[in-house]
Amino acid sequence: MMKRLALLSLLPISAYVQAEAVSDIYQPDTRQVRVSGQEAIPVRNAMLGIGAVYQSQDNLESRLGVNMSVRWLASDRWYVSGEYQHAPFNQDAVVQDGAVVVEANENASVLAAGMGYAVMQGNASFNGRRSYPWQLAVEMFAGEQFTGDTSGRYTALGFSWQIIERDYWVAMGWRIYQTNDERLSKLDVNSGAQWGVSFGFWF
């Protein structure tokens, strides 16, 4: 029994010796954010892209527009986004009580910022030989829609499915949107849904 106790008493001694052996503790006192510049590791900072959007505007004909977007990656799943979108708003003038409320061939431009969160990430393969990482993100936007001579607060909520290649990406998105431009609100043409395809590269 004594021998056994003596042997067990070596246990903390072994742990002490083991802790002493780990002496390479690195304790720097200067920190910098981001990895760039440290031993030349390339970093994916943001996604820049262009695309086409198809808008189904309530009580107006559907239309095709263009979209430019940037997504700045804050973490694995979170990103901050900004976008500019331009599309024709209507073809024919809208007359109400004898007055032209919306002139013919007005255009709508949207300048908005927002954020996204990748709720799902996975891997897709089309032919079984090569596979592509993808993620499905929920996105929200706030900004302003400029329509003709008036404007209003723009809000949107949707999702984006992004296929991520090493040097480029392709995304398909869908969203619902609304603007509080009172000129459009009176005609009930201030909201709708849109879907689009965009592609771009990393930088």
């Binding site: 001579d149 008036t150 404007s151 209003g152 607060r153 509080n180 431009d181």
Partner: peptide
């Protein structure tokens, strides 16, 4: 920023 119609 707020805008609604012509007011901003």
């Amino acid at each position: 920023r707020a805008s609604s119609g012509l007011a901003e």
